[in-house]
Every structure is written in C-alpha cells, then in structure tokens.
C-alpha cells in the first residue's frame, strides 16, 4: 500500500541562527515529518523549541540552513499563494472595519478590492459567526472575536493550507475552549491542511489528527502521536478516557527530566 502524497514535508531540516555576539545557535535539528491532505496536525512543545520557526519555514518566510521544506513536492523558495496564516495576536488594522480587515490581503496584494472579494468576505464572516459585525470597528471586538476575524482574513484567498501560530494562546480559558470547537467546525466546513502550533496539551489532543511532540532547544521531533478520538469532537471528547490517556502520556514525555 502506498501512502497518499504528502502536502507538507520536512526533510532533515536544520535551522541555526547567528547571535549578535557571533555564536551560532541551533533552533531546529534534523526535523523530518510529513503532513497529508486535509490533515490537522498539531506541533506541541515548550517555548523556545522552534515551533514558530517551523511555521515560518513552511510559510516561506525563512529558509532552512540545512535540509529542505517542500509543499506538494516542490521545494519552498518563497511565500506561496495557497497558504493562509493565523498569528498568535490577531494584529488587525485599526483603520479598517471588520470587513476591511478580512478583505485586506486582497487589497494589499492586488491594490483594490472587487465586489466578488467583498462577497467572499461576507461569506467568511458568516462562517466565523460575525456576519453582523462587518461594519464594526476592530477595537469594539473581544479578543476571541478579533481572532475570528484573523481566521476569516487567513481564509480569504482560499488557501489549501492553514498555518496557525498559537492562535488562541492570548485568549482567556473560556474563549479558548469555545474557539477550539469553532475552529473544528470551520475546518469541517472548509477542509484544509492545518499545521497548528501550540504549547497546550489539551488543545493539541482535542484538535489534531496527529501531534508532533518537540524537544526543547534545539527543537527536534521527540514523538509523533496519532489521536484516536472519533470525530466530530465535542465537550464529551474531553471526558473520553482516551483523551486523558493521551494527554497524560504527552505530559509524562514532556516532563521526564523534571519529576516533581
């Protein structure tokens, strides 16, 4: 049996940085993994393990010092049109209303916004549950709502791949749970290949098909885990024994050398 062709693949990726004092620091070491079509993969690791670098390598914003990153079999040499990014902070533009923020990528890339894009943006706002807020000012929205706008903005150019960099980590715990389920609903309605960076174990287990657990600096793959929770997932998934078993397993793996 041949495995389906991968969408994102990392082949022996190394990433070193040169610090200001001239010393070289290794951020990622010999990183290899594959992500399949419409797969939801969470990358989990402690802060400073190079998770964000991994996302920026995929986005074509930085380039590896060794090995290579390919998307649909083509080496990444520049940012691609079929990738949308959701950042840790929503970073919306305060001088546009919500609709203007969602259409911003198109305006920025092509210089103007067409009616077709506005219609698309309205559809996306409906998808993220903000259709009534199209004309609202950004500052009037809560953190969770702002991040919904961030997701709609990332989906505007209809990317195949969605890169998410700890998108809910700045939210309070309640909004965070709510947004996790919202994201699963959006992902079910608009299937995408998702690379989701997080440092939250429950979040990774709840959302992902597979979890890539990283080691601390330099970041390397410690373990790749399949999440055997049935979909669609709901609040019930949180009390599934398999949820806790997997979360506990990851916890024990991450904190092996720090027994209390």
């Amino acid at each position: 049996m041949t495995s389906p062709p991968s969408v994102i693949s990392f082949n022996g990726v190394n990433q070193t940085f040169t610090r200001d004092d001239g010393a070289t620091v290794s951020a990622l070491e010999n990183l290899s993994f594959e992500i399949g079509k419409h797969e939801f993969v969470a990358v989990l690791g402690p802060s400073g393990c190079g998770k964000s670098t991994l996302l920026r390598l995929t986005a074509g914003l930085v380039f590896p010092t060794g090995g290579d990153v390919s998307i649909y079999g083509a080496k990444v040499t520049e940012p691609r049109d079929d990738i949308g990014i959701v950042f840790q902070r929503p970073t919306l533009l305060p001088w546009f209303d919500v609709l203007g923020n969602v259409t911003f990528p198109f305006r920025h890339k092509y210089g103007r916004v067409t009616q077709a894009e506005k219609d698309r943006a309205h559809d996306l706002l409906k998808l993220v549950g903000l259709e009534e807020f199209a004309k609202a000012r950004v500052e009037q929205l809560s953190g969770g709502m702002q991040q919904r706008v961030g997701i709609a903005r990332a989906l505007l150019l209809d990317p195949d791949i969605l890169l998410m960099d700890e998108p809910f980590s700045a939210l309070d715990a309640l909004s965070r749970d709510e947004m996790s389920f919202e994201l699963l609903r959006i992902w079910t309605e608009r299937p995408k290949t998702v690379l989701f960076i997080t440092h939250s174990i429950p979040e990774a287990v709840l959302l992902a098909d597979r979890i890539i657990v990283m080691t601390p600096r330099p970041g390397a793959v410690r373990e790749v885990l399949q999440v055997e929770l049935p979909r669609p997932r709901s609040f019930d998934s949180l009390s599934d024994p398999r949820f806790n078993a997997l979360a506990n397993h990851i916890r024990s793996r991450l904190f092996t050398r720090q027994a209390v």
């Binding site: 520049e78 940012p79 990738i83 840790q88 533009l93 920025h108």
Partner: peptide
Amino acid sequence: PEELIELSRSLRADRSREMLNIRLPY
C-alpha cells in the same frame, strides 16, 4: 507589529505597498 510585516511578505507584496498600506497608517 512583526506579524503584519510577515503577512505582507507572505502575500508577496512589495516594500512600497508594505510602507503605504501598513507602516505609514500604523
């Protein structure tokens, strides 16, 4: 914010657009 510059780069917008659409209004 660095994220907006990255957004701009990920859209492959040139530097003048980045200045005009993001940096100056910011």
